[in-house]
Structures are given as C-alpha cells and as structure tokens.
Amino acid sequence: MAITHQSLSMLRLTAALGCGLMAGVFFAFSTFVMPALARLQPSQGIGAMQSINITAINPFFMTALFGTALACLGLIGSVLFKWHQPSASYWVAGSLLYLVGTIGVTIAFNVPMNDALAVVKPDDGADLWAGYLTNWTLWNHVRTVSSLAAAALLMLA
C-alpha cells in the first residue's frame, strides 16, 4: 500500500509543479512577451510570433504542457478509488481547471489563432495581427489564471 500512496503523492506533486510551471510560462507571455511584440511594427511582430510558435513545438514544452495534463487525468482517475478523502475534491477541481482552462483553451483558441497567423506573410498581415494580439493575449490570460489556480488547488490538496 505504501507504493500506491507514494505514487499518488508523486503524481500530485508532478501535477502541481507542472501547473505552476505552465502558469509561469503563460504569465511571461501575458506580462512582457506579447506587450513587447505589440511594440514592434506588425510585420516584425508577426515574424517574431511565427518563429516563437514554431520553436514552442519542442519536447520540453510539449512534455510540460501535456505531461501535466496526463498527471491531472491520472489524479482524476485515482479519485475514483479515494473519493472519501477530504482532499479529493481539490484534486478533481485543480485537475479539471487545468484540463479545461489550459489545455481546452489552448486547443480551442490559441492554436487556431497560431495556425491562422502561420500562413500570413508578415508584410500582409497588419489587420490580422491587431486582432491576434488582443484575442490571443486574452485567452492566454485565461490559461495563466487557470494554471495558477489549478496549481494552488493541487497544493492545497
């Protein structure tokens, strides 16, 4: 039974740290990366963001983003067997907040905007860029708050 308890503790720690790490990444984008890109000429901002979006698809970032999601799914699954524990509701709430508010928002909003930006020629995308900056950053704020709140709930558990 000690292995199961230890494994569950490691899963909770992994999920909480992953949520906190992702909150930090998203916070950086919300507070200084996107404002810095907004100060550039549209063609320069578009080119820079296109480069960021390509570079973000790497094993380290993807493991942090989706590995945390897997840890959250594992926590939700483990609650089925430990629902009687007082902290179980925190595990579920934190995990769902990350899965919906971070992964769901990323897939439904940020990635489609990134895909639309990817096919634009930087010199022709000023109109798209203005809307992109506003909308992408708004949804990134949601991801920031969701990840941070998820980390807090998982730590409280």
Rank of each mutant, 00 (worst) to 15 (best):
A56Q: 13
Q41V: 02
H84E: 15
F26R: 04
P112A: 04
F29A: 05
T106V: 02
L75E: 14
I52G: 11
C72H: 03
Q41S: 12
L80F: 11
L37P: 04
L80G: 14
V92K: 11
A108Y: 00
V111G: 06
A93N: 07
Y90D: 14
G104S: 06
Y90M: 14
L65A: 06
V79C: 12
T106K: 00
F61M: 12
V92P: 01
L96W: 03
S95H: 08
S78R: 12
L40Y: 02
I76E: 08
P42W: 00
L99T: 04
G45A: 09
W91F: 11
S43A: 15
H84T: 08
I76N: 13
T63A: 15
M49I: 01
K82E: 13
F61L: 13
T55R: 13
C72L: 02
G77L: 10
F60V: 15
A36T: 15
F26T: 01
F29P: 02
G45N: 11
S89P: 00
A36W: 01
F66R: 00
T102G: 02
T55M: 09
A38C: 06
F26M: 12
L40V: 05
V111A: 05
A36V: 07
N58E: 14
L37A: 14
K82D: 12
F61K: 05
Q41R: 13
I107P: 01
C72K: 08
W91L: 10
V92D: 10
F61A: 11
S30G: 15
L73S: 08
A69H: 09
L75Y: 12
F26L: 11
A88K: 09
V33T: 14
F26P: 01
A64K: 00
W91Y: 12
Q41E: 13
L65E: 03
L73Y: 03
P35I: 03
W83G: 10
F109T: 00
L96G: 03
M34G: 09
S43K: 11
Q85Y: 09
Y90C: 13
M49H: 04
A56N: 07
M62T: 11
T106Y: 00
F27T: 07
N58R: 12
I57W: 05
H84F: 09
W83Y: 09
M62V: 13
L65P: 00
F26N: 06
G104F: 01
L99R: 02
F27M: 12
L96I: 05
R39G: 13
F27H: 10
F27C: 13
F81Y: 09
W83F: 08
L97I: 13
L99D: 02
I52W: 07
W83R: 15
L40N: 10
F61Y: 15
Y98W: 03
A48E: 08
F60N: 08
L73P: 02
L37Q: 09
Q44L: 09
V25G: 03
S30N: 15
I107N: 04
I57H: 11
F27E: 00
T55E: 04
S87M: 10
F29L: 04
F60P: 05
A93E: 11
G47S: 07
A108T: 06
